[in-house]
Structure formats: C-alpha cells, structure tokens
Design a protein around this nucleic acid. Structure first.
Length: 489
RNA sequence: UCCUCGGUAGCUCAGUCGGUAGAGCAGGUGGCUGUUAACCACCUUGUCGGCGGUUCGAGUCCGUCCCGGGGAGCCA
C-alpha cells in the first residue's frame, strides 16, 4: 500500500479504527509489506491442480471443522465459487492460539504445499505450514453464518453479501456478461460511445428524470448548465448522433429513472446497453438483438459453468435447459395486431381489456411468451399513438416500426425501433407530442443533413442478468440497488 | 402511488381464548486422527419494528407511522 494513503487518511485510519483497539499497528505494517504477485488465485489452482507445489493463497475463511489433532479450513478468495480446503495441524506455531479459533469471515494468508486430497469432495488441498490471520471477524457480531440466509436479509447488508455463494456468483456472472457485451459488439465493428450521464434532453416516453442542480445555496433557479438538466433516462438520442457519423455504435452505461416503481423488475439506477445502427431497418434491428442475446447466453454458460450450475441447482431448477433452448430455437415473432387477435381469441380471461390501440399489459405479455410460444417472443409494429415520437411511422400511419422482445419470467427485456429519418414526418410527430422543436434542433439536424434509415434498441442489463441467473428480484443482480426509499451505501 | 401479506433471539420461524416468551440453526466451552451444512455433550442470547390508545394486565385488540415481501401501474 503506498505510503501516501496513510499520510492523507483521517486520524482513525492511521491510528486504528475507534473500537478496534484490539488490533495492533503490526497488522498495518504487515499489510503494507504485502506483494500482490505473491498470491495464487484459487481458480487457477483448481484448474491446474499442480500438486507438489508450494503456494500462497489469500482469502476469507468460510468454515472450519476440527477433528482430533487437526482442522479443515475452507478458504475462498472470490476468484471462483469453490473454496480451497486447507489442512492445518498442531505443527503450526499458532495452531492452539489462533487457528483453532478461526471463524467465518476472517481473512487469512496461507502458505503450504498443494497435495492430492485423499477424501471425497475435492481433488486437491493445501497442507499449511503457515497461516497468518490478517483481519478478524468477531463471530458474535459477524452477520454471515455458514448457513443459508434469505435474500431479503442479505439486502440489508449489501456491503457483506458478495461474500455469500449466490451473490458472489452473481458478481462474477455480471462481470463476464459485461465483458461479453463488449466482445459481441466490438467483434462486429461497433464503436462504443460514452453518452452523457447529465443530460438536457428528455428521451420522451422513457420515464421521469432526476433533476440535477449544483446544490449551492440560492442556485435553485440559476441552472448550472444554463437550463434544466437531469440524469439520463436513455443514451439513445445521443447514440443516434454517433450512429450517423460512425455507422454502428453502442452505449453501455448507467441510466436513471425517478419513477416510484416498487417491483422485482425495476431500479432507480440501472445499466443499459443501447446499440444504434445506421443504414438499418427494423428487420436488421431484430436480427442483431436475437444474435446478441444468444451470444451472451452461450458465452456465460461456456465461461461461468460452476456459477451457472449453482443457479440451476438452487435458484431456478431447469435454468440451463431454458437458456440452451433459447440459444437453439428461433425467436417467435408476431405483430402487435396479431398479438391482439391472439389475446382476444384466447380461452384465458384477463383482468385488463384487450383492444387494438391499448397497450399490452404484463399479464398479456406473460401469457404470450410463457403459455402460447414458450420461448422469447418479438412483438412489432405497435400503434403509433402509444409509442414515442422518434419511432418510424409505418405506411398507413397507424403503426410504428417498434419492437419489444419478451422473455418468459421477466417480460420485456429489449425495447427498440427503427427511428423516424424523414424530417417532415418527425417534425409533425414532435408537434403532436407537444415537444419544443427549438430544444431538439440538433436531433432534427440529423434528418436535415445526410439522413439515413437507422434503428436501435435498449437492453436492460439487470433484466438480462435476472434471466441468465434465475434470480427472482432485480435487487440481487446489481451490487448496490437503488430503489425508492433505499440507497444504503 | 394503489392493493395485499408480513416485522418476535445473530438467522429462520412458532407463540392457542389478552395473563411478563420458545424451537431449530448460529455462537461459547469441552470431546473426537480425514471432515464436507461434520458429529456428541453442556451453556449463553430478547427495546416482541416505533409511537399512542383500550385494559387490572397487550407479542396478542385498536389507531398511526416506519421498514420488508408479493402483485399492479410506469418501463429496461
């Protein structure tokens, strides 16, 4: 750890935490001497199984079992789901004083030899000749136990929950999916655009914006940016700017909605992937969305097999089969008009009315994707009146070139459209929507100078992770969920 | 925001007709030479979500607020 960190830290950091006087300065010195390259990650050890080697591992004690003169200690370092079993016996100088009291959550450095394990349950284990306790975790107060906890409880300790099997697996799968998103687009020549997080344009129809102010006293009316600004609800409009310059682009960033939505599928802060493609129509849009979803599912099943097995076994039985079926089958496709006909002739009775011109309700979407088609379903060509101004008006003027991809269990996971590229049509749609044209002249300019047919969509990253992991509540698939009334750390 | 179900030990939950609270797990101590949610014995743990009310007496009944689950709307 660089010296400067200590010099610039508050006093309690340099002299020890208040109430933590038990832990002497020596811990700090040991930490400062630590060399990152010394340690071997457990994931690599389990892959290579190089028995006979002397290794150093670092991690947190998951559980300890004593038997006669020695102990089994399971240590996890977060690199993978599996722990490494450490054999510790009385030859260790601190065996009686420290090792026999090791409790869940304690951080340790273990040095020893990797050997083949004589018992079932693990192929290899490390026989320790040195175990250093780095940081204690008082078992009387440490909230995590070596047993199952409810996700509701874990949500209250979002700073500790990634240390559990399920939430740790979500963390790794999320990281892998994020990497795969970039691989998918970069591999197809898409260029990533960092669209603004603070924005002055409201992507109409995308929900309510959080307002941004400088927070300085008396500055309420005096807008920092010269006009009202908010946190982005979508990067789409700005992505269109770059699509009409660089061709195929995508954004992948945080998005904010000030809606008081209290459901298992909504967050006030979430991450969204938004590709935008020039010289592309609705068909091309649907194609790339389906290809992308299949690529991502295949990638995560290939590269996170242990984590995915955990979800398959404990979170959603049959998950892996469900995902493989999605990869193997073509997505179903119907138009909104056909969807309405199907719903009207369905034997099932719905709580909400089905009528051409009304938006499809959650129950309708769920019925179509879960009961009628039993696989992902793309619904296209919605009534113009219920969709935002930027969607391209179809011939006849009644519908727009919109598409929603619905998946069983989640509902809408992708929403997109071909964009209106005709200047005059766009202007009249904006006027109908009551939008101030002057504020959006930059957006209209794209149609004035070198306009081309273009299309794009938004994929809710957390909804994708929900679908991939089978986690029932979206608050479990983002590290620090922000929901109405809750943003603990 | 609306509907609905909840809040009791560190965790998961029981608590009958209103009479000052209980189980399993976790934790502690001891035992055990290969454990896998180890096992066996003994022991500890409470602002019954907050506030107010009814009552001789409230975990239990009433009001209100806070927090959480599920559903709806909005959407990704």
């Amino acid at each position: 750890m660089p010296h400067g960190i200590w010099r610039n830290s508050p006093g309690w950091m340099r002299h020890g935490c208040p109430g933590r006087e038990k832990w002497p300065y020596s811990i700090r010195h040991r930490t400062r001497k630590m060399v990152n390259a010394m340690k071997t990650r457990i994931k690599n050890i389990l892959q290579e199984k190089g028995t006979g080697q002397r290794l150093t591992i670092t991690g947190w004690v998951r559980t300890r079992r004593d038997t006669g003169g020695f102990s089994f200690i399971e240590v996890g370092d977060g690199s993978c789901l599996a722990n490494l079993q450490v054999i510790a016996d009385s030859r260790l100088t601190n065996y009686d004083s420290e090792v026999k009291h090791l409790s869940t959550g304690t951080s340790v450095i273990v040095e020893g030899e990797l050997k083949e394990s004589p018992a079932k349950g693990q192929a290899v284990e490390i026989h320790a000749d040195r175990i250093e306790i780095v940081g204690h975790a008082d078992p009387e107060t440490y909230p995590l136990q070596k047993k199952r906890h409810s996700f509701e409880f874990l949500r209250e300790i979002s700073h500790l929950r990634p240390r559990t099997n399920a939430l740790g697996a979500v963390g790794r799968v999320r990281s892998r999916l994020s990497y795969a998103v970039h691989q998918f687009f970069q591999g197809r020549g898409f260029i990533q655009v960092h669209t603004p997080i603070i924005t002055t344009s409201d992507c109409e129809g995308a929900g309510e914006m959080f307002q941004v102010s400088s927070g300085k006293p008396g500055a309420k009316e005096d807008h920092f940016f010269g006009r009202a600004a908010g946190l982005t609800v979508s990067g789409q409009l700005q992505a269109e700017v770059y699509a009409l310059a660089l061709g195929d682009v995508y954004t992948f960033g945080p998005t904010f909605r000030a809606e008081k939505s209290n459901t298992s599928r909504h967050l006030a802060e979430f991450w969204m992937i938004e590709p935008e493609m020039a010289f592309c129509d609705l068909k091309g849009n649907m194609q790339i969305a389906e290809e992308m979803l299949k690529y991502l599912l295949t990638d995560v099943m290939t590269n996170c097999p242990e984590d995915m097995e955990l979800f398959d076994k404990f979170i959603e039985k049959g998950l892996l089969k469900k995902l493989q079926d999605v990869v193997d089958q073509e997505f179903a496709h119907i138009t909104y008009t056909e969807a309405v006909d199907r719903l009207k002739s369905a034997k099932k009775t719905f709580e909400f009315p089905v009528e051409w011109g009304l938006d499809l309700q959650s129950e309708h979407e769920r019925y179509l994707t879960e009961e009628v088609f039993k696989r992902p379903l793309t619904v296209t060509d919605y009534p113009a009146a219920i969709k935002p101004f930027y969607m391209r008006v179809n011939e006849g003027g009644k519908t727009v070139a919109a598409m929603d991809i619905l998946v069983p269990g989640i509902g809408e996971i992708v929403g997109g459209s071909q964009r209106e590229e005709r200047y005059d049509v766009l202007v009249s749609r904006m006027e109908q929507a009551g939008i101030n044209l002057a504020d959006y002249q930059w957006y209209l300019d794209l149609r004035l100078y070198g306009s081309v047919p273009h299309a794009g969509f938004g994929l809710g990253f957390e909804r994708l992770i929900q679908f991939v992991t089978g986690m029932a509540n979206i608050r479990e698939v983002i590290p620090f969920p922000r929901t109405p009334g809750s943003a603990p750390c």
